[in-house]
Lab assay of single mutants.
Amino acid sequence: MSIQHFRVALIPFFAAFCLPVFAHPETLVKVKDAEDQLGARVGYIELDLNSGKILESFRPEERFPMMSTFKVLLCGAVLSRVDAGQEQLGRRIHYSQNDLVEYSPVTEKHLTDGMTVRELCSAAITMSDNTAANLLLTTIGGPKELTAFLHNMGDHVTRLDRWEPELNEAIPNDERDTTMPAAMATTLRKLLTGELLTLASRQQLIDWMEADKVAGPLLRSALPAGWFIADKSGAGERGSRGIIAALGPDGKPSRIVVIYTTGSQATMDERNRQIAEIGASLIKHW
Rank of each mutant, 00 (worst) to 15 (best):
Q88C: 10
Q204V: 11
D161R: 02
M180P: 03
L89K: 04
S80G: 11
W227R: 00
E270R: 11
L89N: 04
G248N: 03
E119G: 10
E56G: 12
R7V: 09
V21P: 05
P165E: 06
E26K: 13
R189F: 12
E56F: 04
S96E: 12
L120A: 06
V157P: 02
M268V: 09
R159I: 06
W208R: 01
S233K: 01
I93T: 05
L205E: 02
L167I: 13
R176V: 06
M67I: 07
A276R: 13
Q88V: 11
I243S: 02
H94D: 11
D161L: 03
I11T: 08
N98T: 15
A211G: 13
I259G: 01
D207A: 15
Q203V: 15
T69A: 03
T193N: 15
S122F: 15
V21L: 07
A133T: 12
P20G: 06
E166P: 06
M66P: 01
M127V: 13
Y260E: 00
V31P: 01
G226I: 03
E87T: 08
I45F: 12
D161N: 08
G236M: 02
K190S: 13
E108N: 10
G39Q: 11
H110V: 05
P20F: 03
V82M: 06
E62H: 08
P253C: 11
T261M: 15
A16R: 04
N168G: 11
A266F: 08
M268D: 06
A185C: 07
L223D: 01
D250G: 13
R91F: 05
L73Q: 05
A123D: 02
K284P: 03
S240E: 09
S240V: 02
I125N: 03
S57T: 11
Q97T: 13
S57E: 13
F58R: 09
S264E: 04
T186C: 15
L197K: 06
Q204G: 05
Y260N: 01
P143E: 05
F70W: 08
C75K: 00
Y103E: 03
A215V: 04
T198H: 08
V106H: 08
G248Q: 01
Y260C: 04
E46W: 04
V78C: 05
H285Q: 10
L74M: 09
G194N: 10
M268W: 09
T178W: 01
Q86D: 13
L55W: 07
S96F: 12
G239Y: 02
I125D: 00
R7Q: 14
D212E: 04
P65R: 02
A170F: 11
L49Q: 05
R176L: 08
Q274A: 13
A84S: 12
L146Q: 04
L192K: 01
A133P: 02
C75T: 12
K144R: 14
G90D: 14
N173Q: 15
I11N: 05
L160M: 12
A34N: 03
H110N: 08
A77Y: 12
L192Q: 04
